[in-house]
Design a protein around this nucleic acid. Structure first.
Lengths: 245, 245
DNA sequence: CGTGCCGTTGACGATATTCAAGTGCAGTGG
DNA sequence: CCACTGCACTTGAATATCGTCAACGGCACG
């Protein structure tokens, strides 16, 4: 692993100079929290659990998922490096879904009452709200995607979304990025079968829109892929970001 | 219309006795806000708009929806009487979806900076967070539903969710409720065609699970409907509520 | 008494699933 | 070093679910 990116909880928050003394103290404590690790393809939190602490993933990919009684599984969200993630569940009684790693991750744990402080701290609270609202917008867009887009559009849209989010996190160079998902992951996220995802991947390849081999994804024609997926990035509410280069 | 229910923004908040002086003042100002009205089947907010004020629906049904360039439309959420709803969009730059009424509604408008105060007020802010997390859980469950459940399960699940939410809002008596949605609404929410919704509705009827005529829906066999929809209400995080009677 | 929307029905067709078999590659252990 | 194992990916054929198209009935509203 290369150097750790700055703690994403910090990256999503206002500049410390805009914060009060108290809020700066909060952030210092967070920055000092010990880094924990978890291997790839493991559950971090399970449906039904009652949590006393909150988790923030600092590095690596994860996903939320839910399983039906008969085993059908749906991934409801991907958690990318730099995303705030499980800051909030302890505010509810128990987990209503699970959280699993895709790659190995590094994360920190925060006690519940510390999160409650953060959430109502003036500047920090506002920033967390904003982050939550974007997460919500993404979830809505998944609903639109699975509900209305056909298989090819759905896959194209998913790849676009992930690519734009990775880019905002500074993880794209020359239209290429690390891409640890399997076709089965994409199937569980888009509500199709792995077989059909495979056929659609090949269609995107044959149209010259993407290159994907091993763990590397390259956008050969990003505007074309956006068109194929009826992808409009405004729902991500990405401000013009310096890291976009 | 019968008597107005108490302002839902208040209903979802902690008892005033647990609040500070300042927080009580906030609530008093909200309670004093003038009630606005809008007719059925009209847009309250449109995709792309920039908002200066926040909206809280006090009475009536509404829905969020998104439209693709080619006209396909997906309802991403139903806003029921008693739900907090558009408190937050102004925190983002512009609307990424639209909000339309189903029935006539009554609502209030709050200036943006007042909402920012609420969001970071200790007790109120925590309550709003909780509400937001439940909304998020519902949105995740829609993803699961559209992604994994088949048409019949999807419809059954949607009816169960709406019924449980209406019940928590005190709008169910003897397993019956007002139900102003059309089959086309349900189609746009579940990602199926109106024709197919119709077939599934008839299937549920013929199994003796529901009665639905005009604007009244009655659950003839709620446990059976829950089974048919693989519905597990824990994601709604409804505490034992006195109004459940 | 029209007009329009909502619900209903049937025949047909398309998209995506299921089932089954086989390939390639990475990691493991002999 | 090489065989063996497992997993991800790939391919094809048969099938099913759901969508499309089209027409009609009922009911509310003007």
């Amino acid at each position: 692993m290369q150097d750790l990116p700055p703690n994403p909880l910090l990256a999503h928050l206002p500049d410390p100079s805009e914060l009060s003394e108290t809020e700066r103290d909060y952030l210092d404590m967070i920055a000092a929290a010990p880094l924990l690790t978890l291997g790839a393809r493991r559950d971090l939190l399970r449906d039904g659990e009652t949590l006393r602490t909150c988790h923030v993933i600092v590095q690596g990919w994860a996903c939320r998922y839910k399983t039906l009684e008969d085993g059908r599984r749906q991934i409801t969200a991907f958690v990318l490096p730099g995303d705030l993630c499980d800051l909030y569940p302890p505010l509810l009684a128990e987990m209503d879904h699970s959280l699993a790693t895709i790659t190995a991750i590094r994360y920190i744990e925060l006690p519940r009452d510390r999160v409650e402080q953060l959430v109502v701290a003036p500047a920090i609270g506002r920033a967390l709200w904003r982050d939550m609202l974007v997460t919500m917008a993404i979830q809505r867009e998944w609903t639109v995607s699975i509900g209305q887009r056909d298989a090819l559009e759905r896959l194209a849209h998913m790849l676009c979304e992930l690519f734009f989010r990775l880019r905002a996190a500074g993880l794209v160079r020359d239209d290429r990025c690390e891409f640890p998902l399997t076709q089965t992951d994409l199937a569980e996220a888009t509500g199709m079968t792995p077989v059909h995802v495979n056929r659609m991947v090949q269609e995107l390849r044959s149209r010259g829109l993407i290159y994907w081999k091993g763990r590397v994804l390259e956008m050969l024609d990003l505007p074309g892929l956006c068109r194929a997926g009826l992808f409009n990035p405004t729902y991500l509410h990405q401000s013009a970001d310096p890291r976009l280069a």
